[in-house]
């Protein structure tokens, strides 16, 4: 009787010890996984990468995309790189994505972590170019616009807009990124002539805001009232070209 009791106790102890070990090990293990996953937003993925969480699950870390890339753009994150281990990423300032039309990295991916349905490289969204206006040469009034000229989707992803200049009659010509077209290839970041790039590709989730449905931009909506505003705006007189030129050529700048 006492013997069977003690064996039952032994058995329960064994089960308890096993469960405690597995639970402790599992906790430490899942902590390690979370630590790595936390770095996910800072990695720029190859074109066609599926959403962050899906990519983390689907990427088998085989590096076939790295093999396929003809420009050595892609690397696999090594231990200590502060990017989920073994996953492919690129650093545009070193080598940007040159947007091969046949997308060899996507073709090489065996798991579908790089969206097989991506047909046009211009539809890829690797990141979003963001301009640091404090350090952008164009924003200092210089005629740089290198990013605009280097952009593979120039005049769509990056346009040049004129902007009033405080100390001069002359306008500034400043680059403006359009998230509707920017693929995040990073050619602009590579080309930027400043010591540290003033235009950088970043995961849109980290920089992009959202207006939300509770704001209505009246001038974008067709209503009877906005129609009235539009007709009035059209009748407003613009300054003639001649007057504008005279203004620029007369007197102090």
């Amino acid at each position: 009787m006492s013997k069977s009791k003690s064996t039952r106790r032994d058995f329960l102890t064994k089960v308890g010890q096993g469960a405690a070990l597995a639970a402790t090990g599992g906790l430490v293990w899942s902590y390690l996984l979370q630590q790595q996953a936390r770095a996910t937003p800072f990695a720029l993925r190859p074109p066609g990468a599926v959403s962050e969480s899906d990519f983390n699950a689907k990427c088998i870390k085989c590096g076939q995309c790295v093999d396929a890339c003809p420009y050595d753009t892609l690397h696999l994150a090594r231990a200590g790189d502060h990017i989920p281990i073994g996953t492919p990423y690129f650093t545009p300032r070193d080598v940007p994505c040159y947007m091969c039309p046949d997308i060899p990295c996507k073709v090489a991916c065996p798991t579908g972590a790089l969206e097989p349905e991506l047909e046009d490289i211009n539809d890829s969204r690797m990141g979003l170019a963001v301009i640091d206006v404090e350090n952008c040469l164009s924003w200092q009034g210089l005629r740089c616009e290198i990013c605009h000229r280097e952009c593979p989707l120039t005049d769509q992803a990056i346009t040049v807009e004129h902007h009033p200049r405080r100390i001069s009659k002359h306008a500034m010509f400043v680059p403006l990124v359009h998230s509707s077209h920017c693929t995040g290839c990073g050619i602009c970041e590579k080309a930027c002539p400043t010591q540290e790039a003033a235009i950088r590709v970043i995961n849109p989730r980290l920089v992009q805001g959202k207006i939300g449905d509770h704001y209505r931009l009246g001038w974008t909506i067709e209503t009877p009232i906005t129609q009235e505003f539009k007709s009035k705006a059209k009748t407003k007189e613009h300054s003639t070209t001649k007057r504008g030129l005279d203004y620029l050529n007369e007197g102090e700048l």
Binding site: W29, S30, L32, L33, Q34, Q36, A37, S53, N56, A57, I60, K61, P84, I85, G86
Partner: peptide, 9 residues
């Protein structure tokens, strides 16, 4: 966790 647990470590 939704990631291949052993592959990550």
């Amino acid at each position: 966790t939704g990631v291949a647990a052993f592959e990550w470590i």
